[in-house]
């Protein structure tokens, strides 16, 4: 079930830092070549990518929970099928991404354990609750919209397996984004109660969504090396700005008000947002968001309650193998 063979990546020369190799590596990156799993890469590149890809995978898996919260209550059979398919897609994204991370030498089992123990992070956006059906529309519209802004450039990431996974993920995400927007359109054209539900969801999700792009450029820790390695091609602030500029007309179309009375359009046509409450971001990152405990508890529960099933599958596979060996020996 898990790729045990990948548990250890010691004993080869891939971790050895060597100036000539590092120079060649950077030259390949500069020439826009793709780095593949068996190529030499600096240990820090491997570590950065393992962290980023596995965090991304964890986010997909934890991200199933807030939306999964509405599958059994979706208000029509069409919406129910679309939501179930969407959450299933997220699980699929998690699987591709764990597979991409495994090519860097850490097993899915280890990566998942790091998430369950709280050591590895996932996107903080999933630590907010889905209180009404409008949250499902808003997540599709804004959270998936923001994810696409982040992920489209990753389709050209220097690491081949990650870039290829992102191409497929982005196609599905943009479908989800359109679905979410369509839920919002329906709510905004519906009854006064539905429209109020949509506005309330936007009010609650707007600022956390802006935080999804990460800290402002002047304080971001990872950006410089990630940019040099072409893992990251745009800065946090650049992506955030692109997202806001794309979203403002959509909110206008819906007849919803972005909960930032101070937001203004500058001479270049960009919408300039008011200061973001980075204390809230730090609190959620530190484990103090409204749902951090619930999310981890749900993942741990699924993992622990599934242990006997996974053990049974392993035990059966072992039995079958030894029976086949015994038969072959006869």
């Amino acid at each position: 079930m898990y790729t045990q063979a990948l548990n250890s990546s010691d004993g080869d020369d891939r971790g050895v830092e060597d100036v000539a190799r590092a120079t060649r590596f950077q030259a390949r990156i500069d020439a826009d070549e793709r780095i593949e799993p068996n190529d030499w890469m600096p240990a820090a590149y491997r570590k950065t990518l393992t962290r980023q890809i596995s965090q991304h995978a964890h986010s997909e898996i934890v991200g199933m929970l807030p939306e999964g919260n509405w599958i059994t209550r979706a208000p029509s059979l069409r919406r129910k099928a679309a939501l179930l398919a969407k959450v299933q897609d997220e699980c699929g994204h998690g699987l591709y991404l764990y597979a991409a991370a495994e090519t860097l030498g850490t097993s899915r089992e280890e990566l998942v354990d790091a998430m369950l123990s709280g050591k590895a992070k996932y996107s903080s956006i999933f630590n907010y609750p889905t209180l009404t059906w409008a949250d499902i529309g808003t997540i599709g519209w804004l959270v998936d919209g923001a994810a696409i802004m982040n992920q489209i450039p990753l389709c050209r990431c220097s690491y081949g397996p990650y870039a290829r996974a992102m191409i497929r993920v982005c196609k599905e995400e943009s479908f989800h984004q359109r679905q979410g927007f369509e839920i919002m359109v329906t709510l905004c054209r519906g009854t006064a109660e539905q429209k109020a539900m949509a506005q309330n969801a936007l009010d609650r999700w707007w600022w956390p969504v802006l935080m999804m792009f990460g800290p402002p450029d002047q304080v971001s820790q990872h950006s410089d090396t990630s940019t040099k390695w072409k893992i990251k091609r745009f800065s946090n602030d650049e992506l955030r700005q692109k997202f806001i500029d794309a979203t403002v007309p959509q909110a206008e179309f819906l007849g919803l008000t972005i909960p930032d009375p101070g937001m203004k359009q500058n001479a270049n046509g960009n919408w300039v947002h008011s200061p973001i409450d980075w204390d809230e971001f730090k609190q959620v990152l530190a484990g103090n968001g409204p749902c951090n405990r619930d999310r981890l508890a749900a993942r741990r529960k699924a993992h622990e309650e599934g242990a006997w099933v996974r053990e049974a599958a392993m035990a059966y596979a072992e039995k079958r193998k030894s029976r086949q060996l015994a038969q072959a020996a006869e």
């Binding site: 079930m1 999964g68 699987l95 529960k301 699924a302 309650e305 599934g306 996974r310």
Partner: peptide, 10 residues
């Protein structure tokens, strides 16, 4: 959905 014993089963 989201609670199965393994991602493949989800």
């Amino acid at each position: 959905c989201g609670h199965a014993p393994a991602m493949e089963e989800d």
